[in-house]
Design a protein around this nucleic acid. Structure first.
Lengths: 198, 198, 198, 198
DNA sequence: AATGAATGAGCATTCATTCAT
DNA sequence: AATGAATGAATGCTCATTCAT
């Protein structure tokens, strides 16, 4: 019989992920110390290696947890609602989850800008550059005539993602007064109507 | 009498900055090795410390050089031109300079996302969150009725910066097919007109 | 009632010894991992500690098994045969057993050269420096006038052992083309007649 | 100007090699700690890495020093002398040098028996299985009719090397009473005349 | 007996920075 | 100013062994 039950093991894994998110958030990927994560999770320094292969593996697992959490929170999108509302609920869910792991998210963003693609591949299992869910909403809206059709759905999706990511960056700039909560509304406004006088 | 003339010293400093930009670009801030920078500049490994106090100091100096270069390239903006053209020339100049130091820019972006504000203060001399030049153009355009007036010039400026930065991020994502050259036109289109059908 | 029968236990022990021999052979004493041995034997990683006290204890047990096997294979020596034939059958039996555990034998040899005598004592139960069986054959041959009598039987025995061990070493040198099978004949030739012209 | 002169640097290297030989001798290759070697040489723990790339590199360097020392001590061989005398002076020189680094030699022998060829390649720059100097002497002696000609010079050289190595092994066996000094004479006697009654 | 999670000592290597020359 | 040897703090990861179940 194992020394701890499967449920204890799962709990330990949770605690490690949680401690890791905090540690990465506070110190960044390079700055975080594996031993500290393990100890912060209430385990001995080496124990984390019973759960993860390496520091990069821990990082990857935290990202995955974030990703799952996002899908979970997004929930179902109502296809019949105006594009505005559909996008709003997606953006709000995203910002909510991002807020939950606020500081880790910043670190994760940071690592995407890692110098070498090889290292990056080590950190992210895969990176789907276009968000499928958003693209679906965009396509429907184009079909319904709500969004421009002179740009492909991929292009319009990237526009939304770029704008959102840019806002997040802005939010993370030192001394920024842009809060996470305002982002969805701002993004929607700018995304849909642009800056030109109508 | 100094052992090397002032001009030699200036040249050594240039070479160090140049080597540093390349090294930071290739390996990131953490990954770059001070020794390598000094040697790549044709000097002995310790010599860089006669020019800079620390690795962070070198980084800061590279950023400053980049910043100066940006202002230099932008040149004068024609106040009378349509807002579209004014913004285009700013964006094109920015992308040109970014292109010149492509990889370093990515690293610099990355470091702005550093976990702790203290460390960041160590890296960046100051960080003016809103670009004054762009804001001026926006204000004029609002006055001329070319841009919406229900948002402040600060807000519209941030919109432009966020979108541009988001596009840069997109450009730097692994396997992205978005090139630097296309960014100004895309940004302008999205910025001015948004995604909604007109 | 024990949870496994005595015969199951004996079989587990066998499997562990066998897996250990393979592991030590492939990785050496230091390189071998206790966990791997246990798992390779089809048991859980900690189970090996129900059979052996420590890694050194496992190693010792493998050596003992090898030693028993050697005696078993040698069988009876025909006292009446020429010394040449007696020695040949001993050497051939030894090389056969060595061949059976080829790679482990190399590791065992290696460990005999361990730096500290204390560690060695931990690894080998005892080490009888002169092989009694060979010495008996040598003594008989001296009595029969077949071997020189100006050297003691101990000396002549050591000569044989040194030469054989030296050949094994040679066989184990990287890129050696000396095979185990040729060793008995070569050893006999050199041992009996030396290198000088007769 | 460097902080220490070239001669100081050379001396440091010597001290490191010396400390390394002692450390490897006492603890074996695996057991030796790089830090300890550096500190034992009177330098800070990291300084050894200014002289060598890795632990394996240090080991290699000690082997090379041993090898050079052997050539140096062997000196010139008198081609005209009887084969017996030529071989004796080679063997005596070898045993003398081996004696000088007695314990390290044992460790080096041990590592030649390393399980994997790749690791070995990491330790030894190259391994010439037949000693050229001895082979030359053997060839001359065969030409002069002093040694058997039914075996190639390579074979007879290997015979000598195997016997010598076997004796060294014997000498290193725990509780052996065979001294290094006796080895040359014993080897010569056995090598030339074998064990059979003449 | 069997299991396998937990433990924590142990270690090679890196590299920013110092400073004697 | 330039040099480059010396320094030593710092850390990811391994693995023999323990022991609760």
């Amino acid at each position: 019989m194992p020394r701890v039950s499967a449920s204890t093991k799962a709990e330990h894994r949770e605690r490690l992920l949680s401690a890791a998110a905090a540690e990465f958030a506070a110190k960044g990927l390079d700055g975080a110390r594996v031993d500290d994560i393990s100890v912060a999770a209430g385990l001995a320094k080496g124990t984390i290696y019973n759960y993860f292969d390496s520091k990069a593996d821990v990082f990857r697992a935290v990202i995955e947890a974030w990703s799952s959490r996002t899908e979970e929170v997004r929930g179902e999108i109502d296809d019949e609602a105006p594009v505005e509302d559909q996008l709003r609920s997606i953006l709000e869910a995203d910002m909510q989850v991002t807020g939950e792991i606020e500081e880790f998210a910043r670190t994760a963003f940071r690592e995407v800008l890692t110098a070498s693609p090889e290292e990056l591949a080590d950190l992210l299992p895969s990176w789907d550059p276009v968000d499928a869910e958003i693209q679906r909403v965009v396509e429907n809206a184009q079909a319904a005539g709500e969004l421009r059709s002179d740009r492909s759905s991929i292009e319009l999706t990237r526009f939304l993602l770029s704008l959102t990511n840019g806002m997040l960056l802005e939010h993370w700039f030192p001394d920024s007064d842009l809060t996470l909560e305002e982002i969805p509304e701002l993004v929607l406004d700018y995304y849909l109507d642009g800056a030109r006088t109508r």
